[in-house]
Design a binder for these strands. Structure first.
Lengths: 229, 229
DNA sequence: CGATTACTTGAGGCCTGTCAATGATGGTGG
DNA sequence: CCACCATCATTGACAGGCCTCAAGTAATCG
């Protein structure tokens, strides 16, 4: 699902890279409102992006999967607009923000890719907003499960016993604007109906077409290809 | 609210510009799923961005105001993920997509600005998602009104009788995931309470602090500065 | 002056949130 | 080894915010 990378491009990215970071589960990678000196590409593990609301709630604005680039907002706008937190153990490829400008000057193709990545994020958020705004609970849950299933399958993380999905139901609730209780009951309904079963951190989808129908998604919708930085 | 532009940068943008477009109200500027050969900067007028849902509904993912750049998604990803439609009469500055690549090669500062713009859109969508996901109806409406009031004031469009707001209540409903009826009643409540009055295409805010409180926004939050292309 | 569009208002019902309690699991310390 | 605590999933009862249905008014237009 990623665009190809040529040898000389790879060479530049190697220079751009300054190290690797291993993050424990539930640790903060980037903090909302902070200006980070580093940008990251996720090599393995999963996490969440969320914004905090004054009254103590939070809105999950996205889920971070291997191959995702995080910190671009901080890189171009000065500070992060949301927090990035690891859910599982994560390893990240570290880049220095100070070299971002040299990338724009000397590697226009990589700069284009970064813009592409930002536009992709915008697209994903638009999809999420549409799901949260227009679907009812069963559709929202189905939408999110379908999205994970398609994305994780494209990442070749699917096995016979489904795909890994190490999040909590609370994460889903916060992503979809639902209460934890209703999220739980809706997941139970999908499980009882034999459409999708998310148990013990793994997701199994016996009826992908039915899941897509509930989510109002075309049955063969695939994740868009994206550049890998 | 826009970043400054130097003389030589302006010269390049003049070459980049290929003309102007005048769009009648309710006309489609860019269509979801289409690949556009043009990109635009809005010079005057207002519009909406929306995504269509299979069952006939739509989700408004943003409102287009003067200074906004539209078509970047098509420019970097190949096709638009949402439709852009004019609400009022609009004038737009037209750029050719084919020159986008030369911009990345020869004007890294402008390329950086484009990435900045994409990241800004991502930020705005994240805010919208948070409002739609976490606030109840009164808060959502207050949030959107507050956002318009701040943005239009920054654009110096404020007069003694408020700011222009030429949208329909249906546009608000589709943006916030509310029904038209409930949107209407909630607007009526804000009007009755003397917090905000949106009538005949103009918005007056007698109690900005109260509006911000309902929207869970810091009282002195300003729109983020952004580049102008 | 009929048709269209947009705004307004009332009534009733359901989807979803809140409150509350229980079970299961795993980590921790005595 | 077991009591204790924290986290997460699950389930039932109940209330309420919001949707749907329906009807009416006002303004614009050909």
């Amino acid at each position: 699902m990623f665009d190809d990378v040529t040898k000389e491009e790879l060479a530049f990215l190697q220079r751009f890279k300054t190290g690797e970071l291993v993050a424990e589960p539930k640790s903060e990678i980037l903090a909302e409102g902070a200006s980070s000196a580093q940008l990251y590409t996720v090599l393995s593990g999963m996490g969440v992006r969320y914004k905090s609301v004054p009254d103590g709630d939070r809105q999950v604005v996205g889920f971070v999967l291997p191959g995702d680039f995080v910190g671009l907002q901080s890189g171009v706008m000065g500070e992060m607009q949301h927090t990035v937190e690891s859910t599982t153990l994560m390893t990240l490829c570290v880049f220095n923000r100070s070299e971002l400008w040299s990338l724009f000057k000397s590697q226009p193709a990589r700069a284009f890719d970064l813009t592409h990545l930002a536009a992709t994020e915008e697209h994903l958020l638009g999809e999420a907003l549409t799901a949260v705004g227009q679907l009812e609970a069963i559709g929202k849950i189905a939408w999110l499960l379908h999205r994970f299933f398609a994305r994780l399958t494209a990442l070749r993380l699917a096995r016979n016993d489904g795909v890994p999905l190490p999040y909590r139901q609370q994460d889903f609730a916060d992503a979809l604007g639902l209460s934890l209780v209703h999220t739980n009951k809706t997941l139970g309904k999908l499980r009882d109906d034999g459409v999708a079963d998310w148990t013990d951190g793994r997701l199994i989808v016996p009826k992908p077409a039915e899941l897509a129908r509930l989510a109002q998604i075309g049955p063969d919708t695939k994740p868009l290809p994206r550049p890998l930085i």
